[in-house]
């Protein structure tokens, strides 16, 4: 019995020695045509703009000061001499570290919980995904009402519990606290996807591995650290990469919660200011390119450090 392509009716090119001329196989247009709409989308909406951005980042493109002209790496030099952008680089690094660590740890915890069979599990998964589905601006507005120092929910709860005597100002007073509170809002948004990605990886782990570990006398912690975590690495890697991408591009949460203040401004906010307020598109392209390159590098590092192929 043969499976898939029968080998008899196809030319066995490798087996024919000597001077036999290879017949050119006719190109079947169907597969190309079937993927062509998607290819057009990818080329038109991702590759062409990306190529354009790379090229244009080496040009001076200032709407208010034409003409557009080649200026080498001047746009990149300007980025590093702009104190607001340099400050936003530091802020963004903090967003990435806090966001990736928190969303990964919480994602693993939630995935472990959701892996158990309990009543209402499906409902919990549906509820868990809600923050991920909400637009960032809406989340920002919701959390403004939680962190707010005048009428915020957190102050109300802490006062009711007599943990604080009077309402406190949480956002804006201390840079690290401000960034932490803003990033908690983003973590709330991205953790559901992390949890589901890790859950999918956990569900691939065969149950007999846990059984064998138990029979060998492994403690629950040993089972978690020696069986679960290593075998869930592919899922954890994907979750971390999506967290890196999201946190490096954070915009809505700091913009809504902290305005343009330098205490929380991110790189994508600066891209917006440079491109759409100063109308300096050249510098905006350069900054966008920088964010993309950093995203690729950090994602690659995560991949190298965390990912290990797993076979069952």
């Amino acid at each position: 019995m043969t499976v898939g392509y029968a080998t008899d009716d196809r030319p066995a090119l490798r087996e024919e020695p000597g001077p036999v001329r290879r017949r050119r196989r006719a190109i079947d247009p169907l597969p190309w045509l079937l993927v062509s709409p998607l290819m057009l989308f990818i080329i038109g909406l991702a590759l062409v703009p990306a190529a354009f951005t790379i090229g244009a980042s080496f040009f001076r493109v200032q709407e208010l000061n034409p003409p557009t002209e080649f200026n080498g790496i001047q746009n990149f030099v300007k980025l590093f001499s702009d104190s607001a952008i340099v400050s936003s680089m530091g802020n963004t690094a903090l967003y990435v570290v806090i966001g990736v660590v928190l969303s990964t740890v919480l994602g693993i915890v939630f995935a472990m919980v959701l892996q158990q069979n309990f009543r209402g599990r499906s409902v919990l998964i549906a509820v868990l995904i809600l923050p991920w589905a909400l637009p960032g601006v809406v989340e920002g507005i919701v959390w403004v009402n939680i962190w707010d120092g005048n009428t915020g929910l957190l102050n109300s709860v802490l006062t009711s519990l007599h943990l604080i005597g009077h309402y406190q100002v949480f956002l804006g007073q201390n840079q690290l606290v401000t960034i932490l509170l803003i990033e908690i809002v983003q973590v709330w948004q991205i953790t559901p996807l992390s949890a589901l990605l890790i859950l999918a990886a956990l569900q691939n782990i065969p149950g007999d591995l846990y059984e064998a570990a138990s029979l060998d006398g492994a403690s629950p912690w040993q089972i978690f650290s020696r069986v679960t975590l290593p075998l869930a690495r592919p899922g954890i890697t994907v979750a971390m990469v999506q967290a890196v991408i999201a946190t490096l591009n954070v915009f809505d949460q700091p913009y809504v919660l902290n305005g343009a203040a330098s205490t929380g401004s991110s790189l994508t906010m600066e891209t917006y200011f440079v491109s759409f307020q100063s109308l300096d598109f050249g510098e905006g392209y350069a900054l966008s390119l920088l964010i993309t390159v950093v995203t690729l590098i950090v994602s690659f590092l995560v991949l190298k450090l965390v990912y290990r192929p797993v076979e069952f």
Partner: peptide, 22 residues
């Protein structure tokens, strides 16, 4: 002015502080 006003936008200030009599 309330200390928490450091993060209050104009619309928030009008909708919560003025409109609520604070």
């Amino acid at each position: 002015v309330a200390p928490a006003s450091i993060n209050v936008t104009d619309s928030q200030g009008m909708q919560t502080l003025m409109a609520k009599g604070q």
